[in-house]
Amino acid sequence: MIAVKNINKSFSGVPVLHDISISFIRKEINLIIGASGSGKSVLTKCIVGLHEVDSGSIEYDGRDFTKMNFKERKGIRKEIGMLFQGGALFDSLTVEENIKFPLEMYTSHSKEEILDRVNFCLKRVNLDNVNKLYPAELSGGMKKRVGIARAIALNPKYLFCDEPNSGLDPQTSIVIDNLIQEITLEYDMTTIVVTHDMNSVMETGDNITFIYNGRNWWNGNKHEILKADNKELNDFVYASKIMQKFKNL
């Protein structure tokens, strides 16, 4: 479990996150939703330590991440896998080398064992014969899958996905959502997904946090979100015509 307690964050004196507290539950898809600029990406970056919080604490299974030094954080970071919006695959490395990277950096496995693990991870995300391709040669959906394969290479305890469906067609989005769901259960992970895709929310939202103007505005699950009596949340959820029709049914 990841517990975020009363965190505040500002940039050049402008507050972006206000006293946010959330618990992210293990073996569930924890969604952070909100409009663009609401602070959800900043919140995620604070949780993984890419931004330092001004106050408050972030605990990974009881271990306070905010009080750790670089070396201590490294231990936690090895337990984190992250899927970035654009994939963030290393351009100069092939797919195989991208997945090998964390394994070569942190394990003492033989070359054969590492290659076996790479192939296992690629198979797990349903990719074949892409080992020698470079990221530029992959489609958007394939990049996301390779990103997931790299994220799970070290058997992480925590998986972060930043807009996993952005730039993907609806069918591929569902494939990626299902993959994240399956992997979360299979690896017993705490998964946090940042999204503003309502299809994903309705498909996977076990534990949803709605961020509005840098505040934790609403919490619930995919069943509760449709009935929520919250104006800002309803404005966000029913922004599209399809969702409005769905509401009027």
Partner: peptide
């Protein structure tokens, strides 16, 4: 610079790499 804006440096940091 390209690695920075395409989040490749963030990916390294999250892996615990300096």
């Amino acid at each position: 610079g390209t690695m920075r804006i395409s989040e490749q440096i963030d990916a390294l940091e999250i892996m615990g790499v300096n």
